[in-house]
Design a protein around this nucleic acid. Structure first.
Lengths: 134, 134
DNA sequence: ATGACAGGTAGGATATTTCCTACGTATCAT
DNA sequence: ATGATACGTAGGAAATATCCTACCTGTCAT
């Protein structure tokens, strides 16, 4: 009965995935990747949004560790911090064989086998298990 | 002035990233990956959540194309559909050289160079965004 | 047909996100 | 010092997400 875990590592992963959920924030990351470190002004100029709203998006990215800021006079230069994205890559990794299998048609076969397995198991156990859905 | 685009492809990407933002939904994908296609009952048994709430999570995953359902008598077997995750892998791809550069320490040097350049004159040349890690 | 079961939809409460305007703080130029 | 600039925080409105309790539909067993 593993509900969703709450270790620091898991919360960091949550923050990263949550940050990436917004197209605005993904676009910010793209700009930083393609144009290098930039001021808030330069970054914000492409978005039809009040400055404080944009600042909030930057804060979410900062909290997720995906960008860092450096003071430069009265400007603040934001920089891409790509290392946390390794977590996303690592999360994605075990799925790769599924889409590769899927693309070659092999996975369908495996799934059908698994389906049969599942059906047989359910029948064998007489479906008496699991009422603890509270 | 490129705001966030709204092409069908972009909306599909949004749906995928939004679906992955919830730890519950990522856990569902993990279960489907590790244990193969399963009924809603089997999937839901690990979560402390009412059934309709869980159904809603499944709907989000379905709308993103990340799972498919197949009727099997009065049960519905959900199956992982990994192909949309290729979009995530593709999104991630251009960032890889950044974290690799970062891990070797080379990126810091390049960033510092860019920072200086940026400070003096951001629009000096079209060099923006091109720093090779090799 | 009748009841039990699997899983969905409807509608609503609450929490969170996303956006805004108004204002504060630090830096730069004069 | 004074004003302008860059960017943040405060606080609130509106939209959305997440959860719930009822209830409905379709399938299976009797």
């Amino acid at each position: 009965m593993q509900c969703v875990d709450t270790t620091p590592a898991a919360r960091a992963e949550d923050a990263i995935f949550a940050a990436l959920a917004s197209p605005v924030r993904r676009e910010v990351l793209r700009l930083l990747r393609e144009r290098g470190p930039q001021s808030v002004q330069d970054l914000a100029s492409g978005f039809a949004m009040a400055r404080p709203s944009f600042s909030e998006h930057l804060r979410v990215l900062r909290d997720a560790g995906l960008v860092s800021e450096r003071r430069d006079g009265r400007r603040r230069l934001y920089r891409l911090e790509a290392v946390p994205l390794v977590r996303v890559r690592d999360w994605l990794d075990p799925y790769e064989r599924f889409w590769r299998g899927r693309l070659t048609g092999l996975r369908d076969l495996l799934d059908d086998m698994e389906d049969m397995n599942d059906t047989r198991d359910a029948a064998a156990l007489g479906r008496a298990g699991d009422q603890e859905t509270t």
